[in-house]
Amino acid sequence: MFALTLAFAALAQPALAGVGQPSPWQMGLQVPVTEVAHYIGQFHNGLLWLISGIVLFVLALLVYVMVRFNEKANPTPSKTTHNTMIEVIWTVVPVLILIVIAVPSFRLLKLQLVPPQADLVIKATGHAWYWSYEYPGNEGEAFSFDANMVPDDQLQPGQPRLLATDNEVVVPVNKNILVQVTAADVIHSFAVPSFGIKIDAVPGRLNETWFRAEREGVYYGQCSELCGQNHAFMPIAIRVVSEEEYSAWLAEARQKFAATGRPVTVASRVPAAE
């Protein structure tokens, strides 16, 4: 029954899961809007059917053994201690199952960890307990800003509690966005479920992740590493807009966030070997 419930949850996912944020009574992953998130959803649902089949098969074997080999039905038990064929089967079959699982899992890892050529690079730094973001640019064009959670008494209509921020990250739709992630104090974790991204922000180390959002909207995430007292109050809000809207926001943001006059430094990437 539990396995069937899980399988139903996978089928019901599109109707019950939220876009960009969790939904009441959600039973599946958030609706994916990137290639990586789509692949994660497919991999998750495929594994769900596989493990459901294994659970039902093992349950059937247990029921058969209880009925066929109980004391009443089988008063004189066999003295057999080994069966070579059965031992080969229960060794080889799990190995084959793991190989079947490994192939798509390695493909997913490559998709996640080998970013394509970036159209935009953003640096995200985790602090206790908020995020700051840096947009690179030429002299006088670079800027950075902090993003703090909006308190309950200041929420505007449409802003979700514990997820909305006073300043949102804004990116263009259908563009490769490379996010370089680090931390200023303790270990944090940058995660946005609808994008299928989650990567640790480690002090003194620069990690990276990427996404290419297929549809406009606001997508929320949170720090996913237990980082201290206010761990639950450092959300991530990313607004995906058209290229025209992004250009207008960029011009406004350069004025709003008072560029320091020096370029924001982001790490350059060495193309991964094919």
Results as ranks from 00 to 15, higher is better:
Glu139Arg: 09
Val171Gly: 06
Leu162Ala: 14
Leu178Lys: 00
Gln156Asp: 14
Val192Cys: 10
Gln112Thr: 00
Ile187Lys: 13
Pro94Asn: 12
Val55Ser: 01
Phe145Glu: 11
Asn83Val: 15
Ala118Lys: 09
Asp146Arg: 10
Val65Asp: 01
Asn176Ala: 03
Gly53Met: 10
Thr76Glu: 04
Tyr133Cys: 14
Ala118Tyr: 01
Val179Ala: 06
Ile86Asp: 09
Pro94Glu: 10
Ala164Trp: 08
Phe145Tyr: 09
Gln180Leu: 08
Met66Pro: 02
Val67Trp: 01
Gly196His: 00
Asn83Ala: 14
Ala191Asp: 11
Pro116Glu: 00
Phe69Asp: 04
Ser189Arg: 07
Gly140Glu: 13
His82Thr: 14
Ser132Met: 09
Ile54Lys: 01
Ala184Arg: 08
Ile122Ala: 10
Ser194His: 12
Val93Leu: 13
Thr80Cys: 09
Val65Tyr: 03
Val67Cys: 01
Pro77Asn: 05
Val65Gly: 07
Thr76Trp: 09
Ala124Thr: 15
Val181Leu: 02
Lys175Met: 03
Phe143Val: 14
Tyr130Ala: 09
Phe57Gly: 06
Met85Gly: 02
Arg68Phe: 07
Asn138Val: 15
Ala183Ser: 12
Ser189Trp: 04
Pro94Trp: 11
Thr91Ala: 11
Thr84Asn: 11
Tyr135Ala: 14
Trp131Asn: 07
Pro172Gln: 05
Leu162Gly: 11
Thr80Asn: 13
Gln112Cys: 01
Trp131Gly: 08
Phe57Arg: 02
Trp90Ala: 04
Gly137Cys: 15
Gln112Gly: 06
Pro115Leu: 02
Leu96Lys: 09
Ile97Phe: 08
Ile177Ser: 01
Val65Gln: 02
Ala118Cys: 09
Gln117Trp: 09
Val88Cys: 10
Pro77Tyr: 06
Val100Leu: 11
Gly126His: 12
Tyr130Phe: 14
Arg107Asp: 00
Phe106Lys: 00
Ala118Glu: 07
Gln112Asp: 00
Thr165Leu: 04
Arg68Trp: 05
Lys123His: 12
Val63Lys: 00
Met66Lys: 06
Trp131Phe: 10
Asn176His: 00
Tyr133Glu: 08
Ala73Gly: 04
Gly53Arg: 07
Asn83Asp: 10
Asp152Trp: 15
Leu155Gln: 13
Tyr64Ser: 00
Leu98Gly: 04
Phe69Arg: 07
Pro136Gln: 11
Val67Gly: 02
Trp129Phe: 14
Ile101Asp: 01
Val173Thr: 11
Leu155Ile: 15
Trp90Lys: 07
Leu59Gln: 03
Glu139Thr: 14
Val186Lys: 01
Thr84Leu: 12
Val171Arg: 01
Ile197Leu: 08
Ser144Phe: 15
Pro77His: 02
Leu56Phe: 12
Phe57Tyr: 08
Lys110Asp: 03
Val186Gln: 04
Ser105His: 00
Ile122Val: 15
Gly137Ser: 15
Phe190His: 02
Thr80Gly: 10
Gly53His: 12
Pro160Ser: 12
